[in-house]
């Protein structure tokens, strides 16, 4: 079976590396460093199976990216997990309201992230 493709968006190179180490054994990884680059990547005709996005990023923030993909019929059904250092509950609620499937705070437990990801995939399989 073909691996699922995960799009990782984070401006910090070590978080990108870490996520890559953690996930590359189970998934195909595509990495972009901000929301704008990620949107360009999607518009090129790529539809990943899941997106993991940071919030605070230069050029285009995770919030603006979320607004954008949730307004697109092409991308609004891609599950998205926000992974951010922002601890504020208002921020979390805002993202979830916009349609993020989950919100995890940095620092995060890698095992927990993996489980949350596979749970989302499992739910999608059941819904099908």
């Amino acid at each position: 079976m073909k691996n699922r493709k995960i799009l990782i968006i984070d401006d910090d190179q070590y978080i990108r590396l870490l996520l890559q180490y953690l996930l590359e054994r189970s998934y195909d990884i595509e990495v972009r460093e901000n929301g704008h680059e990620a949107l360009l990547y999607l518009q090129e005709g790529n539809i990943p199976d899941m997106i993991i996005s940071d919030l605070d990023m230069p050029v285009m923030t995770g919030n603006a990216f979320l607004d954008n993909i949730k307004q697109s019929s092409f991308f609004n059904s891609i599950p998205l997990i926000v992974l951010s250092a922002k601890e504020n509950s208002l921020e979390r609620i805002e993202c979830l309201k916009k349609g993020a499937d989950d919100y995890m705070m940095k620092p995060f437990n890698p095992e927990e992230l993996k489980i949350r990801m596979s749970n989302i995939f499992q739910r999608m399989n059941l819904a099908r």
Partner: peptide, 30 residues
């Protein structure tokens, strides 16, 4: 009105030339 973020991005996207439109692949060197 509910799609203006998207419309604005697409206008901007089409304003870019072909080269600028290509997304920069971020390669993490392990």
């Amino acid at each position: 009105t509910n799609y203006m973020h998207r419309v604005r991005f697409l206008i901007h996207y089409r304003d870019l030339n072909k080269k600028e439109r290509k997304s920069l692949k971020t390669i993490s060197i392990t």
